[in-house]
């Protein structure tokens, strides 16, 4: 019994060290975000004489515009992806028509193409469509990429809805559009929440595609955050405050939808 206790203490100690190492950079971020730049340079570890709240107000005015852009792009992408993937998922689950299996395979097998390797030819399409330096140049590719997981999630969910629900409405003469809007969609809120959250997170944190498509001054938060850090002589305390402000939308979305987020990341693993 005593050996068991000793082992338990060892486990707790090792886990605590690992957790400390994991979280130290974040603790540093939080601590330094309240310090003046000169304070950081002169006395890195020192507790600041006064907390510099100003970092946060200055950072807010520097990044709020780009956060707004990011949120706009996220919301339109989420709405678009939810709409078209629930429509396709509905039809694949509940209708029978020629070529159904082939079309489903055609849409789903595109998941095998790693998205990052599509950037060069995709950029060519976007510039042909005259969408460079436009939010639509981000939104349209985002929708096409994120709808794929969505179609699978929605199709699986719609297949599980009892047929009686639809049958009753059909007897009363309801059409497919009515069945989709009034029966399938309202029931599928959990799936839509999951899809919405994983879409929001992947779009909000994307750095590469905005870097290719957008130009000043229409930037997303991720681009703005990197620019603040790497252009000229950055103010450290200020950029740390900006990182925290810019992370808040994502933190809030995950917190409010924790249950759906967990389902989302596990279903995301199916993507490979």
């Amino acid at each position: 019994m005593r050996n068991y206790r000793v082992a338990e203490v060892g486990v707790v100690l090792s886990l605590s060290v690992l957790l400390l190492l994991t979280l130290v950079p974040f603790a540093m971020l939080l601590f330094l975000s309240f310090k003046d730049h000169l304070d950081i340079v002169i006395d890195f570890w020192g507790i600041p004489g006064e907390i510099k709240w100003e970092n946060y107000s200055t950072a807010w005015s520097a990044v709020s515009g780009s956060i707004g852009n990011s949120l706009f792009i996220c919301c339109v992408t989420v709405a678009g992806a939810v709409l078209i993937s629930s429509m396709a998922g509905y039809s694949f689950a509940r209708n029978r028509f020629p070529g159904k299996e082939i079309l489903f395979m055609l849409i789903i097998s595109v998941m095998l193409i790693p998205s990052m390797l599509n950037i060069v030819p995709l950029y060519a399409i976007i510039s042909q469509l005259n969408l460079t330096d436009s939010f639509w140049g981000l939104i349209l590719p985002y929708i096409s990429g994120t709808q794929l997981v969505g179609i699978i999630l929605c199709r699986t969910f719609f297949q599980g809805i009892p047929e009686e629900l639809f049958e009753a409405a059909r007897m009363d003469g309801a059409g497919e559009a009515y069945l989709y809007l009034r029966i399938a969609l309202p029931l599928s809120m959990p799936v839509i929440a999951t899809l919405g959250i994983i879409t929001f997170i992947s779009v909000y944190s994307d750095y590469l595609w905005p870097l290719i498509i957008l130009k000043e001054p229409h930037l997303t938060f991720t681009i703005q955050a990197v620019n603040m850090t790497t252009n000229g002589r950055p103010d450290l305390g200020l950029s740390f405050a900006a990182y925290i402000i810019g992370s808040l939308p994502m933190i809030l979305v995950i917190m409010f939808g924790m249950k759906y987020f967990v389902q989302g990341i596990t279903s995301g693993a199916l993507k490979s």
Partner: peptide, 23 residues
């Protein structure tokens, strides 16, 4: 009925063809 079923899939299909397969 078939046309309605296709109508539900066309948006997805267009996105996949234009932004994934074609490039």
């Amino acid at each position: 009925y078939w046309l309605k079923a296709y109508f539900f899939i066309v948006p997805s299909l267009l996105f996949v063809l234009i932004f994934l397969y074609y490039p």
